[in-house]
Every structure is written in C-alpha cells, then in structure tokens.
Design a protein around this nucleic acid. Structure first.
Lengths: 193, 193
DNA sequence: GTATTTTCGACTTTATTGTTAAAATATTCT
DNA sequence: AGAATATTTTAACAATAAAGTCGAAAATAC
C-alpha cells in the first residue's frame, strides 16, 4: 500500500532524465509514460499535471544538491578549506542541474515564478550555510572579524554570477580555475596575515 | 549569387546539431530557424520540407564518415592494421551519428525507407571497402586465401551487430575493447601462422 | 530604374499534447 | 468468496504547437 510513493519516485527519476536531456518543453508526458512503462493517463494518478512532475523533480534535485554539499564539507575542520570545497562542489553539482533552469528560464509563464521562488529559498539557505562557515573562521581566529551576513550574501551573488557562463562554456577545468581565483581573492582579503 | 548554397550549408549545420541532440521528432523547423537567425518560412525557400532538411543532413554525415574512413586508412600499408583502424574509426564515428538513426528508427513511416535505402547503399560501399583491404592482405600473403566477398560481408554484419549495444552503453573504452576482441578473433582465424 | 533573389509575417492545416472522466482491472481486506 | 480500495487503461476532447503555404516587403543584382 505504500507502493504509491515508490512509483512516484520511479516517475520522478524517469522525468529527471528526460527533463535534463530535453528540457521542460520538449519532454512530453508520453515520453515519461513510455520510460516508466505506463499509460500516459496513469501519470495523472500520481501527479496533478506536468508542472507538478517538474516541481517534484526540481525539489528532488535540490535535496541532492544539499546532501552533496553536506557530505562534502562535514569532516573538514579548516574553514578556509571548507569554504573552497563548498564552492567547488556547489558549482560542479549545479553544472549538472543547470539544464533544468536553462530549460525553464526561457519560458515566460507561470513556471518562472515557481522556480524563482524555489531558487530564492535555496539562496537564503545557502547564505545561511556560508555564513556559518565564515563564523567558524572568525571564531577560530582565521578570518578577519567582519559582517559575516554581508560577506555570505556577497559570496552567494558571486556564485550566481559564475553560473551564467556555466551554461555556455562547460569546461570543468576552467571552472575550477575560476573558482580558485575567486576563492583566492576572497581569502587574501579575508585571511589574517 | 552562389549565396544559396552557402546558406543551405549553414542550415544543414544548424540542423545537424539539433537533430543529433534532440532527434528528428523533437527538432522543429522553428528550432532550426532560431539557430540560423532566420524566419521559419525562409527555410522553405531552401528546402521543400523538414524531411528534405533531414535527408541533406544524413547525406552530409555519410560523406563525413566516408572521408574520416579514407583519411584514417590511407597511408597504412599493413592490411591487418588498416582493417583494425578502419573498424575503430568506423565505430567511433558511428557513435556520433547514431542519434539520427536512433531517432528515426522508431518512427515507422516514410522516413524509414529512405534511411534504410541510404543505409543499404552505405553497407554495400562498406563491404566493398573492406573487401579491398582483405584482398590486399591476401595479395601480400598475410591473410589466408579465402572468399573475400563473403568475409567482407561477415565483417559488415559484425559491425552492424556492434552498433546496437552502442546505442545503449556509450562507453568508448568498452567499445575499443570489444572491437579489439573481434579483430583479434578474426585475425587468429585470418592470419597466417 | 527594373528584375531577381531572399526574407518574413500572417495564415491555414495538421498533428501532438495535456488533461479529464469513466470504465476496466488488479489488489487488499473481511 | 465478495465488498472495498487502489491502480491502470481507454477514449475523448480542447488547447497548443508544429508543419507548411502564400503574397508581399526588403534586399540585392543587373
């Protein structure tokens, strides 16, 4: 009787692949149905409509990102190192997810506001996470005392700025270099000498 | 005044990218128009319809494959080496092209016969090319004397057989290993000891 | 300038898609 | 078993999107 959740997950997984490959528009309910070996209408037993499926996928992806960030940073005690790691993992994971955002960004209707809201939520969480890393650094007397809230927001904005070129040029090596550069710049302003 | 051919080539190139990414069905004339910075209707000045664009792309790709094979094998004098190289290049290039075939294979209408005809033509050419490599080998007394026509056809079939899994598992390393295996098997039956 | 080539917007036609409701089938419970 | 519930399928249909047409405007050649 708890099958429903399982099937839902299967649908989400199928939809995830399709959305990431074709984007929201080009992925049809029939595509999803085909992959899940179901009739197109059966999907509506699990999700109200296509957008609901999309939401579920996005939310799922967001949780993956959160987990990746957590897994990557727990265990690192040095705040500077932790911050760099955080940014790297974030950007790399985002590179995978970006297809969705890209696919939706250019559809000017109701989707946008949803993704946008979700995005804002994520940004806030992110600022919070970064802030606590910065606080740690200050605590450990490795970072200069500063307005960590402001600094965290700055970092979030910097990472968002990095995303746009990410859509166009997918060179991972390039990305790492750019991240390192930014991190270095931040550190030479941030670290005690 | 010879602009027409140039623009045609541009359209083919744009369509090539789109078809290879999205397949025949999910690529729309508007997609192609957008990429070429033209109005959708303008495309119909150069091509009768979507299928014509597709044909042009396929034909173009086929010529690329032929050229790649020629370039890769000319200059190699040892027939065994040449054969292996031929197969490797063929499979690797085919891996790029396979999206088209895949995209069309499952559309059971008029396209099939066209692609099929073109495919048959290519198979024949291929059998011929392989046969001449085999003939060389026999000539140079490196291959056993055998019915090279039959052997060439066998090889073509073997390569076609390799294509199917190619669609599903895209591991290039795996592919090379499999090719080597097949080539090795063939050689131990083929080479003089 | 006129003729020719090329582009494009406004349409029409055709095909696909999302969605719904109801019927059919399977599963679980008593 | 058979009632109750959960899932899938079928068939329909409106909305949307796509393919393709046409004439006329731009651009270019002559």
């Amino acid at each position: 009787m708890k099958k429903k959740e399982t099937v839902k997950q299967e649908i989400i997984e199928a939809a995830r692949q399709l959305f990431s490959r074709y984007g929201f528009r080009k992925t049809t309910m029939e595509d999803i149905a085909r992959v899940t070996h179901k009739g197109k209408s059966s999907l509506y037993y699990y999700f109200r409509n296509k957008e609901e499926v999309f939401r579920a996928v996005i939310i799922h992806e967001a949780s993956i990102l959160r987990k990746a960030l957590k897994d990557a940073t727990t265990g690192i005690s040095d705040p500077a190192e932790k911050l760099e790691k955080y940014m790297k993992v974030r950007m790399h994971t985002m590179k995978e997810l970006i297809n969705y955002y890209d696919a939706v960004e250019h559809e000017y209707d109701s989707h946008y506001s949803f993704v946008d809201r979700l995005r804002d939520q994520f940004d806030q969480d992110e600022a919070q996470a970064i802030r606590s890393i910065l606080d740690e650094g200050v605590e450990q007397d490795k970072f200069q005392a500063l307005d960590t809230e402001l600094a965290a927001n700055t970092l979030v904005i910097a990472m968002k700025g990095l995303e746009y070129p990410l859509v166009w040029k997918g060179s991972a090596q390039n990305l790492d270099k750019r991240i390192q550069k930014i991190v270095k710049i931040l550190f030479y302003g941030l670290l005690k000498r």
